[in-house]
Design a protein around this nucleic acid. Structure first.
Length: 456
RNA sequence: GUGGUUGUAGCUCAGUUGGUUAGAGCGCCUGAUUGUGGUUCAGGAGGUCGUCGGUUCGAGACCGAUCUUCCACCCCA
């Protein structure tokens, strides 16, 4: 009868230590979000399917977890549709709800739905799990947390500047030094596509360009050619493959390439604005880097595109991403509402901190001392001390059973509790408490006041 | 969704061309030690070899399916 228990692939249980570490990351991000003026909202874990479907491209639709209708959901399905076995057609008939795929689209829905109650510009943050029916890999799960901060209702580029500062603030607070904030602009990509006569193939063009790091110049050219971009156009890209120098000099070179594209020029202006502001304001530990091959979320980004990569040497995909979307709420019927935002991948940040051994020791919320139980008389006496310690904000507890002392000590040892406190007949007579430091093994006799002073 | 990979005790892993009762280290339990854990010593428990089916006199090993792990694509945090 007993079945071997298991959890679905791509999901995880978290033990107390892991939860403590995750909360540390959550709290750090939350503190910075609030410092920058963002306010929290939450949305349901599942949405109506039509809210989500079609917002992330075909690939995205495939990765959305659909929720089966309740009841006798097959009864209403026409026989012909059922026997056709076409999932794309059948799914909408048997599933009307789906699990949240990211936090941005539900946020857009939220803004449109509550537009009359929202004071714009609206800065919100949201830290909730999202689900993707992806095939799991390292740092890639089917249930994971995103921590998003977005602003809607402002086209000001100062927002982009703020988000670069926010990324820097969070990763500095996490003592995760050396992350790279990559930035690009949709208008630059459009401009380049325009210049090479491939405006209608923008997505194909950028998807290929995005792989430059991974597969190299030649393969990128091959892929572009295969997607129908002319050889002449690809030749015009040559200067792009040879971009060199810092942010400002790369911008200079881009300016030459994009001189004939109005949209490209606009993108350059925006990047210049952001770069100059950041150069003036400075960053604590992160680096801002122009990356013209960066092409994420093109289904809705219209201006800046951000991606954060882990410090060099850590093998991990991006640990954050974001960008500006001029018309995300448009699909829900609210026009002219520009948004810009960033996301932190909690689970990946966890893996990076773990790999770099960068969690502080203080994440542990363990109790500071365990009272040894010598029997009901002694336990009642000890409980009074427990109560006194707790009233001084000292985390402590009494071992519940009068078990053998060895067992109780071992329990304290296993839980890595720093102190044990012994209160037996001897101590009760002298009104003292025997405090044992578990690492050194040293013991001392203390009055209650001294005990509190020592552990507080 | 495509291609590959992994699964043996709580954990990490051995297990020969298919051959008796499947092993080790660590961990766990008991005792040496009825007011002292982490060290030591003695003893002990624990596995339908991921699951289902097939080949065979005989399967942990070979074959198939399925689930799971990890990796590369695709895509993405």
């Amino acid at each position: 009868m007993a079945q071997k228990p298991s959890i679905p692939k791509g999901t995880r249980d978290f033990n107390p230590e892991q939860v403590a570490k995750r909360n540390y990351i959550f709290n750090t991000i939350q503190t910075q979000f609030e410092r920058f003026g963002f306010q929290p909202i939450e949305t349901p874990s599942f949405e109506n399917s039509d809210t989500l479907m079609g917002k992330y491209g075909d690939e995205g639709d495939r990765l959305i977890f659909k929720i089966l209708n309740s009841g006798d959901f097959l009864r209403k399905v026409e026989d012909s549709l059922y026997t056709e076995k076409n999932a794309t057609k059948l799914t909408p008939k048997i599933s009307e709800k789906a699990l949240r795929y990211d936090l941005t689209v539900p946020f857009a829905r939220y803004v449109v739905q509550h537009q009359n109650d929202i004071e714009f510009p609206f800065k919100r943050y949201q830290m909730q799990p999202v689900w993707r029916a992806d095939r799991p890999q390292k740092g890639r799960f089917r249930e994971f947390y995103q921590c998003d901060a977005d602003v809607v209702g402002s086209t000001s580029l100062w927002q982009e500047v703020e988000f670069v500062q926010l990324y820097d603030a969070v990763f500095s607070a996490l003592q995760l030094e050396g992350v790279t904030i990559k930035i690009n602009n949709r208008k630059i990509l459009s401009g380049i596509a325009e210049v090479i006569g491939a405006s209608d193939k923008l997505i194909d063009f950028t998807v290929a360009l995005d792989k430059l790091d991974k597969i190299g110049e030649e393969k990128v050219k091959e892929e572009m050619l295969a997607k129908g971009i002319s050889e002449e156009g690809i030749n015009k890209l040559q200067p792009l493959f040879e971009l060199k120098g810092n942010f400002a000099t790369q911008i200079q070179q881009l300016q030459d390439i994009l001189s004939v594209s109005e949209e490209g020029q606009k993108g350059i202006e925006e990047l210049q604005f952001i770069n100059m502001a950041i150069a003036e304001l400075g960053l604590q530990t992160a680096t801002l880097q122009l990356d013209v091959t960066l092409a994420r979320g093109l289904n809705y980004y219209t201006g800046a595109i951000f991606e954060v990569s882990a410090p060099e040497g850590v093998k991990m995909g991006s640990i954050g991403g974001g960008g500006r979307y001029d018309d995300l709420t448009g699909i829900f019927g609210l026009k002219n509402m520009s948004g810009v935002g960033i996301s932190f991948g909690l689970d990946r940040i966890y893996l990076v901190l773990e790999e770099l051994d960068a969690f502080p020791n203080t994440v542990n919320k363990n109790i500071k001392a365990l009272f040894i139980n010598f029997g009901d008389n002694e336990a009642l006496y000890a409980m009074k001390a427990v109560k006194a310690l707790r009233s001084h904000n000292i985390n402590t507890e009494l071992y519940p059973d009068a078990a053998k002392m060895g067992k109780q000590m071992k329990h304290a040892d296993k839980r890595q509790i720093p102190y044990t406190i012994l209160v037996g007949e001897k101590e009760m007579e002298s009104s003292k408490y025997t405090l044992k430091h578990m690492v050194s093994g040293e013991q001392e006799q203390l009055s209650l006041d001294k005990l509190i002073a020592k552990l507080a």
